[in-house]
Every structure is written in structure tokens, then in C-alpha cells.
Amino acid sequence: MHSEPTEIFESLLTSNHRLTRMAAQSTGSTVSAGVWSTLSVLNADGPRRNGELAKAARISQPGMTKLLSNLIDDEWVYRIADVDDSRAWLIAITDKGRDALFGWRTQLAEATKDIFGDLSDTEWATLGRAAEILASRVGVTEVAA
């Protein structure tokens, strides 16, 4: 049992990372984690400049430029003029990109059924409350449509 806040958060972060990797691998998807990270940032935070988006998604700026080219071709994101700087562009998520992101999240959740299928109602309630607490502390307000 973890008793110190640092131990609790270390366990949460490590377990979440492992769970996400396990779920992603089980889907068989070849879409990179960078794509989902980028779409998640845009969905949660709104349009961003390339450099800001690269930093938020933890991708190099050259890597982000290449990734955005593919996302624009796939119509998952689009460029809009930056009203604060006419030389710059902002990147925004499209409805198609949002649908892809929410579809991916559903796939990840479905992939965890075998791991969590035997939880009791009490355990589900505990996880539900923990998810609410985490979401409120990190500013998660987005909900799948």
C-alpha cells in the first residue's frame, strides 16, 4: 500500500503509462502516439501554433511539422490565420480529427475489458471517483460526443 503522496502519484503515473501502452498495443493500430497526443492537445486546449503544439505534445518541432502535414492531408487538422500575427498560422482540430480521437479512446477503453472485467461495483465506484478527482485537478473538461 502506498502511503505518501509522492508514492501514490508515482504509482498512478507508472500504472497509467503501462495501461495506455498495453491497450494501444492490443488494438493493433499503426497510428503513432504523437498523433493522438497532438489531437488531444488541440481538442483540450484549442488552436495552437506549431511550436506551442510541439512543446505541449512533447514532439520536436521538425517532427511536428511532418506530423501536421500528414494530419492536414488526412483532414484531421487544419490551418487558420493567427489574428495576432498575420505571418503565423494556428493549427486546429477538425470534426473528423475529433471523431478519430474519440474513436481511439473508445478502442483503448475496449482493450482494457480483459484487465478490469472482474472488478466489483465498489471497485468501479472507487475508480470512478479517482477519475473525477484527477480530471478536476488537471483541468479535464472534454467529453466524448
Rank of each mutant, 00 (worst) to 15 (best):
A44Q: 12
M1N: 09
F116W: 10
G103P: 09
D118L: 03
I115V: 13
S15N: 13
V140F: 12
A135R: 13
D84F: 03
A131Y: 04
A111C: 10
A81K: 14
A33R: 08
S29C: 02
L53Q: 09
F9K: 10
E132I: 10
R129V: 13
G117W: 01
G46R: 11
F9N: 08
R49I: 01
I93A: 07
L101I: 03
L71R: 03
D85L: 02
D118P: 00
V41G: 06
E123F: 01
V143H: 12
T27V: 10
D73R: 08
I8C: 01
P62F: 03
T38Y: 05
M22R: 14
L108I: 15
N43A: 14
L101H: 01
I133L: 15
E132S: 14
V83M: 00
S3K: 10
R49K: 09
T112E: 07
D84Q: 15
N16E: 13
A56Y: 05
G128Y: 04
S26M: 12
H2W: 03
E75S: 13
S60V: 03
S86M: 12
S69W: 05
R98Y: 04
G28N: 08
D73H: 08
T14V: 07
L39N: 02
A145D: 11
K55E: 08
K66M: 01
R21F: 09
L53N: 05
R58D: 04
S26R: 15
W124V: 06
M1E: 10
R21C: 09
E4R: 15
N43R: 13
S26G: 01
P5Q: 04
D74L: 09
L101T: 04
W124G: 00
R21K: 08
L127M: 11
T6R: 13
L134R: 06
I115D: 05
T38M: 07
K66C: 00
H2M: 09
V83H: 03
S26I: 09
K96F: 06
N50K: 13
T126Y: 01
E123L: 04
G46M: 04
E7G: 04
I115H: 09
D121Q: 11
F116V: 02
L119Y: 02
L108E: 07
Q107E: 15
R18W: 03
H2E: 10
A56Q: 09
E75L: 05
